[in-house]
Simulated scan of single mutants.
Amino acid sequence: MSDELFIGMFPGRSRRGVNAALVNIINGSMGILHAMRTPYPPAIRQTLEQVLATGKRPGSDVSALLDDNLGRFFARVAQNLVREAGLEMRDVRAIGVQGQAVWQEPDGETPVVVELANPALIARGTATTVVADYRSAGVESGGHGAPLAPLLHQHLFSSSTENRAVVDLGETAHLTTLAARGGVSAFECGPGNCLMDGWTQRHLHKDSDSSGNWASKGVVDAGLLQRLLDDDYFSLPAPGAKGLEYFNMDWLDKHLAGASLPPGTVQTTLAELTAVSIANRLQDAAGPDRLLVCGPGAHNAFLLRRLSAALPKAIIEPTTRHGADPDWVDGLLFAWLAQQRLEQLAQDNRQITGAGQAVMPGEVFTPPE
């Protein structure tokens, strides 16, 4: 049925393109009919890299240009996705969009996140309703407006018989804890793949050590690991929201100063840092019976083994075993959020984002008549 099809769109973790999933939602269950990754055109990618390289909030002129260009590009990607699935845009009820983040100030008095991909242009270009800007309602209610993924994690992965947690291993590691009694909490716990990816790019000249093959051949340097864990960040209470503006190669180089270690040893130690920092946060939360893994890090066999070693009492497995492709949980998220918003279903994320009340995340953009 046409009113059961939604598209979830979100930027790739490497900021090099957009991911889109065509999702069938019926009676609360979800299935992906088709999904695709599309790299940004060179002009958009170059502008985006220039904006990010400044380390400053982009000016209004650059933001407006990039916002419009990304909006038009997202619209083309949505059309291609539906065409490849053998359908038409009129079969899709709505598109849920997360824009490309170019600036974050999570710790300010009023949290600021600048996400670009003009939703009005996406609606116009696809002749389809778009739901976007999911954070504002939460911020206006006194919270941070994010994270949003725990809402879906609770919907898909909670259990009444065991305590569970979900870790999204992207550039940073995002945790959701799902208590059997019904409680939910969410926080970041430090680097996910970002330091390992940056080190791999520097020494192997490739994007990532995605399977953990390089890291598996080295040994952990206990001294370096302790220096990294001694960083003030790891003693902060949850949620501890820090991204690439904090965990980057400059941060790593500072902690490596004066050390002379083989690159492989550093890579193995960085994998251990990710595993141990996740385990420490989960042990603070009493530890789960089962840890579900999604995001790019779900394919890193070495990292999963280190997580198992750090959490010996927990069953660790990818979200695939619970009906969700670990690469496309975010696609499900934004399709589901769009559906929930159009059905005017409020989301109680007070425990997650600190909002003062249940809110309906997302602004609706309808195409012109």
Rank of each mutant, 00 (worst) to 15 (best):
D207P: 04
A279Q: 08
S260N: 14
K254A: 13
V220G: 08
A215V: 00
V220F: 06
A271K: 00
W251K: 12
T269D: 04
Q267Y: 13
D209Y: 01
H205W: 02
P237W: 07
V219F: 15
L204M: 07
G218Y: 07
G223C: 06
S211D: 05
V266N: 01
K217R: 12
S235M: 03
L273N: 05
Y246R: 06
N280E: 10
L225K: 08
M249P: 07
G240D: 07
G243D: 08
F247C: 09
D253H: 05
K254L: 11
H205Y: 02
N248P: 07
L256M: 08
S260Y: 10
P237L: 02
H203W: 10
R281W: 06
Y233W: 04
D209I: 01
A279Y: 04
A222G: 01
W214Y: 02
S260T: 14
S211T: 12
V276T: 14
S216I: 02
L225Q: 08
N213T: 03
Q226S: 11
T274R: 00
L236G: 10
D250P: 02
P263D: 14
S235V: 02
D209F: 00
N213L: 10
L229T: 08
L261F: 15
Y233S: 11
A238Q: 08
A259T: 11
W251V: 12
G212Y: 00
N280K: 10
D250Q: 12
D231A: 15
K206D: 13
L236P: 05
T274I: 02
A275E: 02
D250S: 09
L256C: 06
W214L: 02
S210C: 07
A275S: 08
G258F: 11
K217L: 09
V220S: 06
K242N: 03
H203V: 04
P237S: 04
A222V: 01
Y233Q: 05
S210W: 09
L225Y: 07
D209Q: 00
D230M: 11
G240L: 11
H203K: 05
R227D: 14
A238F: 03
S216Y: 04
T274F: 00
S211Y: 03
L256W: 04
R202A: 11
D232Y: 13
A259C: 11
D231P: 15
G218M: 03
K254R: 12
H203F: 07
R202F: 06
K206T: 15
S235K: 02
D209E: 00
H203P: 06
A259D: 13
